[in-house]
C-alpha cells in the first residue's frame, strides 16, 4: 500500500532523463528518422524503408573508405601503443625531469585539432616547411602530400602519432608509477632480466590503463575528421577520405541526408561492436580460468 505512495522519488530522475534525451536519444532518433526517408529539400521527403541502408551497403566508395579507415586505425594502434609504452619507460621517475617531461608530453594534447592540421600543412610544405624542405632539398627525396597518396598517408599518420602518442605515454606512465616497488625488488631477487621484468610485471600491471588507451585511440582514430580534413581534405583523389570525411561530403556536400543517416547508424554500430570486442579481449588477456 505504502509502496505506491513513495514512488514520487522517481521524479528525481527527470533531470537526467531530460539531459540524456536532448543529448543523445532525440538526435539519434532524428538520424534514424532521416535514414528511412529520401529527402529532397526542407519539407519534401518520401518514406523509403530500408532502401537507404541497401544503397549504403552497396556503395563502393564507402567500402573503400571503410577499409581505408580500418587500415588507418590499425596502423595508429600498432605504432602508438608500443611507442607510448616505450616513452613511458624512458621518462624520468623522480626529480625535476618528471614535471618537465609531463608538461612537454602534454603540449600536443592542448592544441585545437584544426590548428594541428594547419601546423602540419606548413611543416610538410616542400618549399618552406621544416620537414618538407628538409626531405626534398637536403635528402633529395621528392615529397609532396598534396600530390602523392603515399606521402599524404605518411603525413597524416605522422600527424596523428605526434598528436596522440603522448596520451598513450601519459596513461602508461601513470600505470607504471602505480606498481609497488616491492615487485621490482622481488624480480631482482628472482634474477629476472629487464625484459622479463617488463613482460611479467610491468606489462600485466599496465593492462588496465592500456585497455583504456587502446579503446580511446581506436575510437578517436576511427572517428578522425578535423586534422585530415584541414591537412588533405581527403585527397589527393580519395586517398585520405576517411569515413567521417565521406559522411560529411554526403550529408552536407550533396545534402543526401537519408543516405548519410543510414551511413551514420552503420558507422555507429561498427564502433560499438569493435569497442565491445576490444574490451572483452583485453579484459581477458592474461587471465586464467582459476576456479
Amino acid at each position: 500500500m505504502n509502496k505506491w505512495e513513495n514512488n514520487r522519488a522517481w521524479l528525481l530522475t527527470v533531470p537526467v532523463l531530460v539531459i540524456v534525451a536532448f543529448s543523445s536519444i532525440i538526435p539519434l532518433m532524428t538520424v534514424v528518422n532521416y535514414s528511412v526517408q529520401d529527402i529532397f529539400g526542407p519539407g519534401q521527403s518520401l518514406f523509403v524503408g530500408t532502401e537507404m541502408y541497401k544503397n549504403v551497403l552497396r556503395d563502393a566508395r564507402l567500402h573503400e573508405a571503410l577499409w581505408r579507415q580500418f587500415l588507418f586505425s590499425g596502423l595508429v594502434l600498432l605504432i602508438e601503443i608500443p611507442l607510448g609504452i616505450a616513452l613511458a619507460l624512458a621518462m624520468p621517475k623522480k626529480g625535476w625531469g618528471v614535471s618537465f617531461s609531463l608538461v612537454v608530453m602534454a603540449l600536443p594534447l592542448l592544441i585545437p585539432w584544426n590548428t594541428i592540421g594547419s601546423i602540419w600543412i606548413i611543416f610538410v610544405r616542400p618549399d618552406i616547411g621544416l620537414f618538407g624542405a628538409f626531405v626534398n632539398n637536403v635528402l633529395g627525396i621528392g615529397f609532396d602530400h598534396t600530390a602523392r597518396p603515399l606521402d599524404a598517408w605518411i603525413t597524416t599518420l605522422l600527424m596523428e602519432i605526434w598528436h596522440w602518442t603522448p596520451l598513450v605515454a601519459l596513461l602508461a606512465y601513470a600505470g607504471l608509477r602505480a606498481i609497488p616497488e616491492v615487485y621490482y625488488q622481488a624480480a631482482k631477487i628472482d634474477g629476472a632480466s629487464p625484459w622479463a621484468t617488463f613482460r611479467y610485471i610491468q606489462l600485466p600491471k599496465m593492462r588496465g590503463v592500456l585497455t583504456i588507451a587502446v579503446l580511446l585511440r581506436f575510437m578517436d582514430s576511427f572517428l578522425i575528421y578535423a586534422e585530415p580534413f584541414v591537412l588533405t581534405g581527403g585527397g589527393p583523389g580519395n586517398s585520405t577520405t576517411f569515413l567521417s570525411i565521406y559522411l560529411v561530403k554526403l550529408a552536407l556536400g550533396q545534402f543526401d541526408l537519408g543516405t548519410a543517416g543510414a551511413f551514420s547508424l552503420i558507422y555507429f554500430l561498427i564502433i560499438e561492436i569493435l569497442c565491445f570486442v576490444f574490451y572483452q579481449v583485453l579484459k581477458n588477456v592474461g587471465k586464467g580460468t582459476g576456479t
Binding site: 609497488p180 616491492v182 615487485y183 625488488q185 622481488a186 631482482k188 631477487i189 628472482d190 634474477g191 629476472a192 611479467y200 610485471i201 600485466p204 600491471k205 592474461g286 587471465k287
Partner: peptide
C-alpha cells in the same frame, strides 16, 4: 641476483599472468 638470497615480502608478490 648475484647473492643467492631469497626474500619474502610483507605482501605476497606474484607474477599475475
Amino acid at each position: 641476483e648475484k647473492r643467492n638470497i631469497a626474500q619474502v615480502f610483507q605482501f605476497p608478490v606474484l607474477y599475475d599472468t
